[in-house]
Design a protein around this nucleic acid. Structure first.
Lengths: 187, 187
DNA sequence: TAGATTGTTAATCGATTAACAATC
DNA sequence: TAGATTGTTAATCGATTAACAATC
């Protein structure tokens, strides 16, 4: 085992992440003293601690709504387990897709959504559906006990109450940011 | 015409955006005095000014590499023009896709990439390709005069030089953030 | 004119950086 | 022990907020 891979200093980390070493040490210390003076941080241990802080081992029960190109791309290319989730069901209103599979998960019709979510205690929903569908689907899911939404539609979910957690993803904003940087020579 | 739709105050904006009115006014003033005392901001004018600041009318010549599910989803659901870009070509190494179309843009093989980029002066590339393909494709594109990258692969492009601009999109990070919030009751 | 709301300065707050004693 | 590097405090910096004069 190479020693270089087992430990890392705040200085090394700071260079890789383009931050200062101070910031690395201070931020990590908000959660605990994971390092050792004169040595640095044990990489494996640090990884584990961060995973524990995020709660990545919890595996949140997740359903995906909308098996279009984006839904397929996410299902196929994203490692749910590594990101603290477990994909337990995929739903699409197009009944032509019923019983076909994406990465071993069978696509169901919207008619079985309610029963499935209640029976399997789904807690997170990934929304890959058109903007007009978001509001009704979202309300329906909340009534079924779903508490969090990863929303890819162009319609912002603005629910700041209860234990509801939302992550609105606007890919257009990301492209617009890039366009701004290109046009204004920001690097 | 309803007056409500033609003007907006920093207070109204702040409520919609969940910021303070002070912040709205101060931030806008970094770029110019777009408002009028006692009145507020003219919505259309403010929109135009912000579009001008971003440079959205420039329409950066854009090619998309990788016509898989993600590439298709982006091509079909994103309004390039509204985000300062113009999609001029799509490329995929699978020659079986050659001459098929996504949203009126024909898919080309990787063999025509070099000539096409040079002839059409492509400046931005959207990368919807596997992580191992990123480095070589990126280097190739740079040699062709492409200056900016919207990178969806799981491989970070770290090019901090010249006039190269990169926006690395890590959808996994977004999901992980959501998982953290869910597990730690952050709202 | 009176009311509203900006542009802008001053005060506050928090985040980043620097410094260093603790200690492995 | 000497060297390295953390944890942590103090200093600096920048961003946010508050306040108010300017003015439509």
């Amino acid at each position: 085992m190479k020693e270089e891979t087992t430990k890392i200093s705040s200085k090394e980390l700071s260079e890789r992440m383009r931050l200062t070493a101070s910031q690395i040490r201070q931020d990590l210390n908000c959660f605990g003293g994971f390092g050792q003076q004169g040595y640095g941080y044990n990489v494996a241990e640090l990884r584990n601690e961060i995973a524990r802080i995020i709660g990545v081992e919890k595996k949140i029960k997740t359903v995906l709504i909308g098996a279009g190109n984006l839904g397929k791309a996410i299902t196929m290319h994203l490692d749910f387990e590594k990101n603290g989730c477990e994909l337990i069901g995929i739903f699409d209103e197009d009944d032509g897709l019923k019983h076909t599979k994406i990465s071993d998960v069978e696509i169901q019709g919207m008619d079985t959504l309610d029963e499935f979510c209640k029976q399997n205690d789904a807690k997170l929903a990934i929304l890959c559906i058109p903007r007009d569908a978001v509001k009704p689907v979202c309300e329906r899911l909340i009534s079924l006990g779903v508490k969090s939404f990863w929303n890819f539609s162009h319609f912002d979910i603005n629910l700041h109450f209860d234990g509801i957690t939302v992550e609105n993803v606007h890919l257009g904003d990301s492209l617009l940011t890039l366009a701004y940087k290109v046009n204004n020579e920001v690097n």
